[in-house]
Computed example of a mutant assay.
Amino acid sequence: MSLTMTDKNKASQFKSGRNPRVRRNRIIGWLFIAPWAIGFLVFALYPFLSSLYYSFTSFDMLSPPKWIAFGNYGRLLHDPLFWRSLYNTLYYTIISVPVSTVLAIAVALLLNMKVHGQSIYRTIFYLPSVVPIVASSVLWLWLFNPSFGLINSFLRAVGLPAPGWLFSQLWVKPSLIIMGLWGLGAPIVIYLAALQGVPQELYEAAELEGCGRWRRIWHITVPMISPVILFNVIMGLINSFQYFTQAYVMTQGGPDNASLFYAVYLYRQAFQYLNFGYASAMAWLLFIVILAATVLVFRSSAKWVYYGGDR
C-alpha cells in the first residue's frame, strides 16, 4: 500500500523534529543529560584544556598568567627533583605492577579452589581494599615503625635484621610496594570472575593428556584470562604512575626525596609553591607518559592476549 500525502507529511515532520511530541521528547532527553553534560564541561573538559594553556605560562594564581611558550618544559629538563621523582615513580611501577599481577592471579587461583569456608577466605582477602587509603596508611606507619612496629618485632624475634623501612632511603620504596600488595582485593575479585569463565572441558581434556597442574595453569588458565590480565595491567600502570596518597601521608617524599613520587612533586609545585604553570606542564608530561605506556601495552597484547573468537 502506498502512503497517503498526510502520512508522508507526518513522517517528514517526525524526521525533521517539527512534530510537537518529538520536540518534547528531545527536550526531556536533553534535560536528563544536562546535569552530566554541565558537570563534564565544567569539571572535566574546562580544567583539561585550561591546564594545557597554563602549561605554557607562568601562573601563580595571584596574578594573570604570563605566556612563556615552552619555558616550563625546558625548565623541567634541568630540574633534578623532576628526574628524581620520575625515577622513583618508574621504580615503583616496574616492580609493583608485575609483582602485584602475579600475586593477585596466584591468590585468585587459591581462592577458586573448592574448600570449606571458601566465601570466608574471599571476604578476608577483599576486606583490605575497602579500608580507606589514609586509614590503612596510618596502620602501616605503625607496622613499619623501626623501633616498636609489629614487623620489626617479629623479625627480631626470629633473629633476622630489622630494616629502617620508611626511615631508610634503601627500604622506603620497597616498603610502599609491600604495602600495596596488601590491598589487592579488587583485582583478585576480577581474576576470580574470569576464572569462573574458563571452560572445565579444557582442564579435563588436558588432564586426560597427562598435563600436570602447572602446565594446565600456564597453557589453559593464563591464556583464557589474558584479556582480564591486560585490563588489570593497564589499570595498575595508570594507578602506579599517579601514586600519591600513601607516599604523601606516610613519608612526605622523604627521607631525602627517596619517596618523592611524580604526583607528590606535582602537588608540591602546585599547592605549596603555587607554580601552577610548572605543575600543569608536569601533568601533561605525565599524561603523555601514561598514554605511551598504555599504547605500548596494547600493541604488545597482540602477542600474548587470547580472545575466544580468535583463530
Rank of each mutant, 00 (worst) to 15 (best):
M179L: 14
I178S: 12
M179H: 04
L192V: 11
L127K: 06
K114C: 04
I217T: 15
V115M: 04
S226M: 02
A194S: 15
V107Y: 01
F144T: 15
G185T: 11
N145W: 09
T123E: 08
V198T: 03
S119M: 06
Q196D: 15
R156H: 11
E209K: 02
R216G: 10
A205P: 05
A108H: 03
L143F: 13
I120Y: 03
A104V: 00
E201C: 09
G117W: 02
L150Y: 05
F154G: 04
P132M: 08
R216N: 11
F154K: 00
I229T: 13
Y126S: 05
N232W: 00
M179N: 15
S137V: 05
P223D: 11
P146L: 12
F167R: 08
S136G: 14
V189L: 14
L141H: 08
P128L: 12
S168R: 04
S175I: 07
G212N: 12
L230Q: 13
I220P: 00
R215K: 12
V189S: 15
P161Q: 14
V130G: 08
M179S: 05
V189H: 01
Q169C: 04
R216V: 01
W218T: 04
L208G: 13
H219P: 03
V222W: 01
V138K: 05
I188M: 01
M113Q: 15
S153A: 11
T101N: 02
A106Y: 01
I178T: 13
F144R: 05
V158G: 12
